[in-house]
Design a protein around this nucleic acid. Structure first.
Lengths: 148, 148
DNA sequence: CACCTAATTGATTTTGAATTTCAATATCAA
DNA sequence: TTGATATTGAAATTCAAAATCAATTAGGTG
């Protein structure tokens, strides 16, 4: 979407950064894919669109996208940092299947509210939070029952 | 404590693993320290007690302690895996100060309950979860106010 | 106790993601 | 167009995590 691109351009200008074709390409791919991607996975996809882009640029641009509020870090239990598209998406938490890796996005307003209260009680000023529940998804529960 | 050691010995025997002085030393230090330690930090401490122990052994033993239910992984936002002592400790979540790194352990039974309900709604069978709230602790809030 | 086998150790190496370096290149305001 | 400055990408570096392997050790068995 051009709206996102405009926002990104504004963000860059505010910081005296430049819009390059690489940054534009990476942003577009990142927006379109809308999955939890590692730097390398995103790099592999971006490469198809523009083979001259280097890994370092993807890495650095992803960092920019994070700072611009487009990308958020996710930890899916594998040993690498993953990024998800954030802008325009509401905050959500993750249910992660330890069997098949599937990731269900959820929100519970009551939990969010209780978190605020919890923080207030501790004199803590929250900025962001992560909640990840690991377990078996519906499909894998059935699968493992069969295995027994 | 000897109770923990006994449990560890049982765990080892069940798996046809052997109790070694290294494993015993590492367990004891880990139990005593009771902080969120990285492999390397634990190694540095263990080395003082027994300088002949190698990093690899600490790494491997920590993995065992995790499997035995003594240690749990924690992610404090720095880029390494930390372990905390779990056995006999109740489950808890973390408020992590992004300014001073302090880590407050908290539990909210209502949140825990809502998590269960949330999972049930999704047909998800939870095994463990992590909730981490990042922000400013009481002390750092005051500090940053002064800074302005 | 001595033997024997399988597990363990630790120095070292390897891996792999995250990050930095730096000379060449591109952007964009004037 | 120009020039100061930001950016790029190949390559190098960093660093924790994990694997390798010959030497050592635990602990069951006779």
């Amino acid at each position: 979407m051009d709206k996102e691109l405009d926002i990104f351009i504004d963000f860059l200008r505010e910081r005296n950064l430049k819009l390059t074709s690489q940054r534009e390409d990476i942003l577009k791919v990142f927006l379109k894919i809308d999955k939890h991607l590692s730097v390398e996975e995103l790099y592999d996809i971006v490469k198809k669109k523009n083979p001259r882009i280097g890994q370092a640029t993807v890495f650095r641009t992803l960092k920019l996208l994070r700072e611009a509020g487009f990308a958020g870090e996710v930890n899916l239990g594998d040993r690498c940092i993953r990024y998800e598209y954030k802008y325009g998406h509401k905050h959500h938490d993750h249910l992660i299947c330890i069997e098949c890796g599937r990731c269900i996005e959820v929100v519970d307003p009551k939990i969010e509210e209780l978190q605020q209260i919890l923080c207030k009680r501790e004199g803590f000023s929250p900025q962001k939070h992560k909640m990840e529940i690991f377990g078996l998804c519906k499909a894998c529960r059935k699968g493992s029952r069969k295995a027994k």
